[in-house]
């Protein structure tokens, strides 16, 4: 690193590197244009159907079978994720965003097994929320999906639940990236911790919902009944959640919020330093004015998409 450390840290004013309070450094490493936004919206709608199917399914519908529905819907969600992946990748992604995504995904993948097994402790959302905060909503969505995918691949956890988990974590990242950009300091951490808590709970509830009939079958009093009024099914679902996954959901909620509160400042500072060094985004290149002295080369940049 001799020499590199100093020279490589270009792009930011040398005195502005203290702490995380310097405004305007958060990047949009993977920009979401209008067309990609539309794709994302439709895919999310599909996701809502897939997650909420026990509440939506009508009596006598093709998918009212509790065992095969999550499999079919898992396949549908997986396909939707692949379609989104094509949308994100079409026309290329900034190579720096790919590398940062890969490395953060790896960090997330080591966070999961480190925390798994101890009831409800789930630290991966801390990284997804903070990463999305610094690198923007598009990156956050990708980070959520790739983290869950990579950790499933590494631990052999691929199953019908994986597409649901990927989409859910992607939403968590997307939402974190869309939070108000202004907040900084303690307010920012509080906002992120609060969001993290809600997101972690929501993630748990949604996954629970889509696999409720799968795991419980139809022969109990708190099972879903296809075609029942939504309110009735919701009541049974709440009872089911309370009796089964509540401790885990609460644990996930608490660990996410506490993780963001404890490690948030340092992690944000680290991520922002990286974002500054990477200098994402098309307008971040101050070169062209003097570059064009001889001839007129096209203003190609590292992020020419």
């Amino acid at each position: 690193m001799t020499g590199r450390g100093r020279e490589g840290s270009a792009g930011g004013p040398r005195n502005g590197r203290r702490g995380i309070d310097s405004p305007g450094v958060d990047a949009r490493a993977v920009p979401i244009g209008r067309r990609l936004g539309l794709t994302l919206a439709v895919a999310s709608l599909l996701g809502v159907l897939a997650f909420g199917w026990p509440l939506l399914v009508g009596e006598g519908a093709v998918l009212s079978d509790a065992t095969s529905a999550p499999l079919v819907l898992g396949l549908v969600v997986a396909a939707a994720l692949a379609v989104l992946g094509v949308g994100f990748g079409d026309g290329g992604i900034d190579v720096k965003a790919i590398a940062v995504l890969g490395l953060l995904t790896a960090i997330g993948a080591i966070l999961r097994p480190l925390a798994a097994g101890t009831g409800g402790i789930e630290t991966v959302f801390v990284l997804i929320v903070l990463g999305a905060r610094v690198f923007g909503p598009g990156f956050g969505f990708l980070l959520g999906t790739t983290t869950l995918l990579a950790s499933a691949l590494l631990t052999g956890g691929v199953g019908p639940w994986l597409p649901f988990q990927m989409l859910g974590a992607g939403w968590v990242g997307l939402g974190a990236g869309l939070l108000p950009r202004r907040a900084r300091g303690v307010g920012e951490l509080a906002m992120l911790a609060g969001y993290g808590a809600l997101a972690a709970l929501g993630f748990g509830v949604l996954l629970n919902l889509s696999f409720w009939p799968f795991l419980l079958g139809t022969a109990t009093e708190i099972s879903f009944v296809a075609g029942d009024p939504v309110a009735e099914n919701v009541r049974r679902f709440v009872l089911y959640s309370l009796t089964t996954s509540l401790p885990w959901d609460l644990g996930r909620l608490i660990t996410t919020a506490a993780g963001i509160a404890v490690a948030g400042y340092a992690v944000l500072a680290t991520l922002r330093r990286a974002a500054r060094r990477a200098a994402f985004g098309p307008p971040a290149e101050p070169v062209p004015p003097r570059l064009t002295t001889a001839g007129a080369p096209p203003p190609t940049g590292p992020a020419d998409r």
Binding site: T2, G3, R6, E7, G8, V287, T293
Partner: peptide
Amino acid sequence: PTGSGKSSLLGAAGARVPHFSGGRLTGT
């Protein structure tokens, strides 16, 4: 010596400076 711009010189030879690292390069 460290910090004398060795990396920048090498980066310029591979076009990493300025396309990848940012910064401003004048000359050819």
